[in-house]
Write a protein that binds this DNA or RNA. Structure first.
Lengths: 195, 195
DNA sequence: GAGATATAAGTGATTGATCACTTATATTGC
DNA sequence: GCAATATAAGTGATCAATCACTTATATCTC
């Protein structure tokens, strides 16, 4: 059973009813907010009955949490994957992978961008925490000024990329984030070193 | 009739039923999302009847839009107010005022941070647009590199501060944004000049 | 491998609760 | 005594979730 994580599915096998439900929910949640979307409309968009939704998820809240955990864990792994390199290389890789993920599955990325704050339980181990650890390591190695709290500095650095993504949400003329990764990398490094 | 914009009211006179409704709505919207809050619960939190809500606002949607326009316009004016100075001075003033507004009325600021994307009609004239114009002016004057799209660069610069605010929402150890304005200013300038 | 039995996938009608909003009535300040 | 301000009691619609039931797919027994 092939596991995918692209336009066709989040964690379930592509094409299955469960994957169609997840994709429909994701799209509608981003368009109209989580609470603003009914289980009936999710089922209609997925082309399944409303009852089936409850065979695969115990509640609408379970569905929304499952989707968030999928992208949240994906982003966390993405940040941690580049910890064993020089800071410049790590930042370049993380920025590139962030942009690629956003471009390859914008609804999933936008879902995390918009609604992560509704899942505070997940925040204790997420991409922000992973980035803060990367900052702290480079501070203790003397490669970054140690005066700033690591999680705050990580927030500011990530904010450069995330707010550009937010601009795309609001209709700014940004097609693909990947078109700007060199600039993002320079800006992130500038924040880390000059703040 | 005194107009206020602090913990006790957004645009209405302090202490009036209308102001209490606005403040209750704001608090609940930030806690539970706009669609996740009922008119009944807003009225209960404000200590008024549900019907009274409809004497002051024609709908729940009107109420949420009124609140958003209030903070949106306030932020726009804040950015435009500092356009006639040197770039360094403008950035310092804007960062200071942003942080002060966030600290003085966190629910109102958080409301803008969280739900602005649900009001795309307002985006054409907002703080992001005002910041983009400031960037464009400094680019044409040769004080900033002209290679980057102004709205994208403005997004990235604002993102430094806004993502720090987001960190506070997720429970990071940030008490007051105003405690970090010098660092924010340095980071914003670094993004603008090095990106 | 055929028949029997179990399990998973799927349906759509229905539930009580809650939704945004309205109407009829009361109270207030001048 | 009259507006303006407020309230409580409603309205039909829609909500998330569950229900009894059907169909398809395994798994087991011999």
């Amino acid at each position: 059973m092939e596991m995918v994580s692209d336009e066709r599915g989040v964690t379930a096998a592509a094409g299955t009813a469960k994957a169609r439900i997840e994709r429909a929910a994701l799209t509608l949640f981003v368009e109209r907010s989580i609470e603003g979307v009914s289980t009936k409309s999710i089922a209609a968009q997925a082309g399944v009955s409303e009852g089936l939704l409850y065979r695969h998820f115990k509640s609408k809240s379970d569905l929304s949490r499952t989707l968030m955990k999928a992208i949240h864990d994906q982003l966390t792994i993405l940040v941690r994957a580049h910890s064993g390199q020089s800071l410049e290389a790590a930042v370049a890789d993380i920025v590139r992978d962030y942009a690629a993920l956003a471009d390859n599955d914008w609804p999933l990325f936008a879902y995390h961008l918009l609604y992560m704050h509704r899942f505070p339980n997940l925040a204790s181990d997420g991409p922000l925490r992973a980035a803060a650890e990367l900052v702290a390591f480079n501070q203790s190695a003397g490669r970054l000024p140690a005066a700033v709290a690591p999680d705050l500095l990580a927030s500011m650095a990530l904010g450069v990329v995330l707010q550009a993504a937010h601009g795309k949400l609001l209709g700014a003329n940004i097609e693909a984030l990947s078109d700007h990764i060199d600039m993002f990398e320079r800006a992130v490094m500038a924040v880390l070193e000059d703040a």
